[in-house]
């Protein structure tokens, strides 16, 4: 095949403004499509190659690292206002492979695969020997703490009745003996006072919230402290498909209410969207 001039790959620098713009478009895509866990920010671009695309445009093949923020995926807070989770809070890193098409000056993601892993226990211990470490979210104490906190919130809440959507992260605190848990909730059509009504098991409204709770073990009982933020109701639109998406590779469900349940262990999550190749 004769070489076609002008169609060779490019290798721009990882900190090249165009590379950064492509990576940031990838991070935006990630945060718009992940419906559980936390929003992530760009931390470091590891590799980049740029391929020409027929009939026009270029595809940025990117590898980059992200860091978990304290904003839940359903939180409407702009990413710029989300704090990066610190090492002492047991940070979580994301590792992403993405293909980002640039055409007519616009970026669009055509392939995305990200996996996240928590920092090692040893690394956290080096910086903070006493800091509580992440605990699997299916831990009995964690599940109990989330349910107790949600019950306490519903008991005090005059508005909608909320149900547990996912447990997002948790830590067992040694002193005072307590369980710290963060979890997402979804409102049902029932008022809080009707929580025991069987009719309340119907399909939930699309109103989500995010709670942080501490359940401390006390002599003869426990003390529950919970704070929940309810996000404004958001219209639920179908997820946009990557350009070359096929029915053989369906994206995750658009409805968080039917998204996979909480991860069975420490939140090590991954999402693969769109076709394998451009």
């Amino acid at each position: 095949t004769p070489v076609v001039l002008g169609l060779e790959e490019r290798n721009p620098a990882c900190d090249d403004p165009e590379t950064e713009a492509a990576a940031l478009a990838g991070v935006d895509y990630l945060n718009q499509h992940v419906r559980w866990g936390y929003k992530h920010v760009l931390n470091q671009i590891d590799k980049v190659r740029v391929w020409p695309r027929r009939p026009s445009g270029e595809v940025y093949e990117l590898e980059f690292d992200t860091l978990e923020t304290t904003c839940h995926a359903l939180d409407i807070t702009p990413l710029a206002n989300c704090s990066v989770r610190t090492v002492t809070q047991h940070a979580v890193e994301g590792d992403c492979d993405m293909h980002v098409l640039k055409q007519d000056g616009q970026f669009s993601v055509v392939f995305a695969k990200c996996e996240s892993t928590p920092d090692s226990r040893e690394d956290v211990r080096k910086v903070c020997p006493q800091c509580p470490l992440l605990t699997p979210v299916n831990n009995t104490k964690v599940v109990h703490a989330a349910n107790a906190a949600l019950a306490a919130f519903n008991a005090q809440n005059n508005g909608s009745h909320f149900e547990l959507l996912e447990i997002s992260r948790a830590q067992l605190v040694p002193l005072p003996v307590s369980t710290y848990v963060e979890f997402a909730v979804v409102a049902t059509d029932c008022a809080a006072a009707d929580g025991t009504d069987p009719a309340c098991s119907g399909p939930p409204k699309k109103q989500y919230g995010f709670c942080k709770a501490t359940v401390a073990e006390k002599l003869g009982g426990e003390e529950v402290s919970v704070t929940c933020t309810v996000f404004p109701t958001q219209p639920v639109a179908p997820l946009p498909q990557p350009d070359a998406a096929s029915s053989a590779n369906p994206p995750p469900a658009a409805d968080p209410a039917v998204s996979p349940p909480s991860s069975p262990s420490v939140p090590v999550d991954s999402v693969a969207l769109g076709p394998k190749r451009v």
Binding site: N11, P12, A13, C14, D15, T19, E20, V41, L42, N43, Q44, I45, D46, K47, V48, D65, L67, V84, V87, A91, E93, D119, S120, D123
Partner: peptide, 28 residues
């Protein structure tokens, strides 16, 4: 005619390696 050999331009700013890029927060 004697000419001086070319002198290297000296130590200038070293460009950063093309990849990986800078760490924006911290590496774990």
């Amino acid at each position: 005619k004697v000419t001086h050999p070319g002198v290297a331009s000296g130590v200038g700013p070293v460009p950063p390696p093309p990849c990986p890029g800078r760490i924006r927060h911290f590496k774990i």
